[in-house]
Amino acid sequence: MLIAIEVGLLILVPCVAFVALWLRDLMSAVIVLGAYSFLMCLVWTGMGAVDVAFTEAAVGAGVSTVFFIAVLFNTTRNITFNPLDVSSKLVALVACLGFGYVLLQGVSDLPDWGDPYSPVNAGVSTYYIENAYADTHVPNLVTTVLADYRSVDTMLETTVVLIALLGIFMILKKDRPAQSDSSDTQAHDSLIIRLSARFIAPFIQLFGLYVVAHGHHSPGGGFQGGVILGTGLILMAMSMGMASAKRLLSIPRMIILAAVGVLIYAGWGAVPLVYNGYFLDYSVWESVFGSMARSHSMLIVEIGVALTVMCGMYGIYMSLVSDGGMQEGL
């Protein structure tokens, strides 16, 4: 039964992707891309990857759709057509078909779907599954591997988010921001939207904190929680106007918070070096936390990740929607 649903979804997914690429109105294409992301979430949930599906629902379907719309809102949603340049399109099509053909030839050599003894599923992942709970007392294996066994990887990924945030600030920075009066940005203001956003936003933030803290026992963790926290801030910025959103969290404060997130991560990892441990080896904290040392260290590290990701998502949205000037937006 579940397999039948999975097969249906897998057939539906390329069709939706094709529609998203084929539509000639950019706004509709972005919305269809959001629907595509949600379908992908269902596929991954069916394959047992709940954490990945959670991340995709928050990031792929939620935040990246908002980013696309923020850009299209300031520019154009129309696609201009030139006289068709058939030769280059033909070359691209032939190249892509060749690429796909060669890869499809290799499919028959891959291990069977769902084979527990394939090379991917043997090896180190077996160790992770069988020993993670004894080592760290955290039931969610994904969190364990993310924040403990492969911690350096995650630290650098967090740094990538910080660097992307700084890069966007630099690309869209204006030397002298234009002084626009804030009165006309408040013109399209609706009481209903403002009140319900103000009512929901604290609950979104609370849920974000819950996802960060409860990531040890259920799907979730620093990345998902950070994205949800950022979404709450984006909702406030959308409904209350840019000026009050900037009062909430200004640009210098945003950059400092994002950097502090990475610093928490790296600093917590660097302390064991003083006590003759390895970088990011949390077991030296056992003198403080006892047997829960690695579990508590993971929580602290995830808080750092959540801070960086929250500021990253919020800062990217603010820059994109206001064209870098941070003066007015949606």
């Binding site: 990857a49 954490d51 990945v52 991340t55 995709e56 990031v59 792929g60 935040v63 990246s64 980013f67 991917v120 180190v124 992942s125 992770y128 599954i129 294996l141 994904v142 364990t144 591997v145 993310l146 492969r150 990887d153 995650t154 990924e157 990538v160 988010v161 992307a164 945030l165 966007i168 990345f223 994205v227 990701v309 990253g312 998502m313 990217i316 994109l320």
Partner: peptide, 19 residues
């Protein structure tokens, strides 16, 4: 869990590069 965490971080980094 190993392939899942690789892809989890890839999604978040993907949205940062998309931005």
């Amino acid at each position: 869990p190993l392939t899942q965490i690789l892809m989890l971080t890839a999604i978040v980094v993907g949205v940062a590069t998309l931005g």
